[in-house]
């Protein structure tokens, strides 16, 4: 039996903040815990796209950050291809890459400069790197002259395409995608989704996709986990989940499980 791409057992994460009660004097502040993940268990087999669905504050990004070795869990264990994210972080990092909601680039540098930097960090630089970068970017529909322009001159959709291309350039076994299409216009969103499907067809890779876009999840994911308040509410293939809850869309499934819509949750987050 192959080693799971992701194996999480009893992972819990809470954030401690010093806060003042509404009517307490200004000098009296107590510690308060905000739980981001409740005793999470999850196993993801290698290959395929697994979606993590949930509103802001549901624990999606915390999960991604723990798997990316950017955060340590308070309890439980998390492994990536058998490597423990806390005690074997360097090994884990050799097998992963991440595309986040904000394309993490040096904005003054060009896509080429950013990608050669990434390639050096991942030990993926060779004589043909420039040709490969040009090929990937052209394949993604980016004009050839874009490669040497500062990133800040590119549209957000173009930046996200470069971010996806950069992640594939380093040939990760697990790609963590944290809301890669959030904030993009509908056309850019479709293009970025198409890019992901295109590159996945070429490269054997496991993708963990965090999103609150139910349509995106239904289109791209073979398996979906719904998170709310740091707990898993549902787990299964999009069709199975819809069938199980007698719903026509994943949005309806989420509504049945929580009594609320994702849009309403987003509004609450914005108001807070």
């Amino acid at each position: 039996m192959s080693v799971p791409a992701i194996e999480i057992r009893g992972v819990r994460k809470a954030f401690r903040r010093r806060e003042r009660d509404a009517h307490a004097p200004w000098w009296r502040r107590g510690w308060k815990d905000t739980v981001a993940l409740h005793e999470l268990d999850l196993t993801v087999a290698p290959g395929g796209v697994t979606g993590i669905l949930g509103p802001n504050g549901s624990g999606k990004s915390t999960l991604i950050r723990i798997l990316g070795t950017l955060m340590t869990p308070d309890a439980g264990t998390a492994k990536v291809f058998g490597w423990n994210v806390v005690t074997q972080g360097l090994e884990v990092r050799r097998h992963i890459n991440r595309v986040s909601v904000e394309a993490a680039f040096f904005k003054e540098l060009s896509p080429w400069e950013n990608m050669v930097y990434a390639s050096r960090l991942y030990g993926a630089v060779s004589r043909g790197t420039r040709r490969r970068v040009v090929e990937i970017l052209e394949d993604l529909g980016l004009p050839r002259d874009v490669i040497d322009q500062p990133m800040k001159q590119l549209s957000r959709g173009q930046q996200q395409k470069v971010a996806i291309a950069r992640s594939f350039l380093t040939a990760p076994s697990l790609l963590l995608m944290d809301e890669p299409t959030t904030g993009l216009d509908p056309r850019s969103k479709k293009e970025v989704q198409a890019v992901l499907e295109k590159l996945r067809a070429k490269q054997d890779i496991t993708v963990l996709l965090c999103t609150h876009d139910m349509d995106e999840a239904a289109q791209l994911c073979e398996r979906v986990l719904m998170l709310d308040g740091g707990s898993v509410l549902a787990d299964g293939a999009p069709d199975q989940l819809c069938a199980r809850y007698g719903a026509s869309t994943l949005e309806d499934v989420f509504m049945q499980l929580t009594g609320k819509t994702l849009e309403a949750e987003e509004m609450v987050e914005v108001e807070v």
Partner: peptide, 14 residues
């Protein structure tokens, strides 16, 4: 400042 801290700390580099 550049927004790359997460990317750099996730790289497989000592």
């Amino acid at each position: 400042w550049e927004g790359t801290i997460e990317y750099t700390f996730m790289a497989p580099v000592r």
